[in-house]
């Protein structure tokens, strides 16, 4: 199958690569571009561990073709910290024990990052709904919710 040339911005860097049209964005990010922070969990868009940011919106990169990201702006967990400084969601997840095995964490962080821009001062209920596209098997969510509340405070204080 002929390959298509695509280019997009990945964590602030221009990248280009050749892909088959059927290649999923998550595979291209992980395997061709070597950014393995985003993971693969369910492959049916239920678990959210592959969540990345594309053009300012969260999406599940297991259910998007890489060719669909052509010309776009993609951010993954590797792009969250800026100039060596962790993002508030990263700090808060560490502080509040919002992760255990770490497998869901990149997706959780990317969704939290976007969610707190959509809703900077959420209630607990709004967090539960806003984060409902991401599964975690380890934490029972309680500390993730706490982490997002703390991250919201940190961001507001900035």
């Amino acid at each position: 199958m002929a390959k298509t040339h695509i280019q997009f911005t990945l964590n602030g860097q221009a990248v280009e690569t050749l892909v088959e049209p059927r290649e999923l964005l998550i595979h291209v990010i992980r395997e061709q571009l070597g950014q393995t922070g985003s993971h693969i969990g369910c492959e049916t868009s239920h678990c959210g561990v592959c969540t990345v940011d594309l053009n300012g919106a969260s999406l599940k990169s297991c259910t998007v073709l890489a060719v669909q990201a052509n010309g776009g702006d993609v951010t993954t967990v590797e792009g969250l910290a800026q100039s060596g400084e962790l993002h508030a969601v990263q700090e808060a997840f560490m502080q509040e024990h919002g992760l255990q095995c770490g497998f869901c964490t990149p997706g959780m962080l990317m969704r939290s990052y976007r969610f707190l821009q959509e809703n900077p001062n959420p209630t607990e209920e709004e967090i539960r709904v806003g984060m409902s596209g991401n599964l975690c098997r380890c934490t029972g969510y309680q500390n993730i919710i706490k982490s997002i509340q703390v991250a919201a405070q940190k961001l507001q204080a900035k």
Binding site: S45, G48, L59, K60, R111, V129, G130, S132, G133
Partner: peptide, 9 residues
Amino acid sequence: IADPQVRNR
């Protein structure tokens, strides 16, 4: 319908 990420697509 679905979840926040899916609703973006």
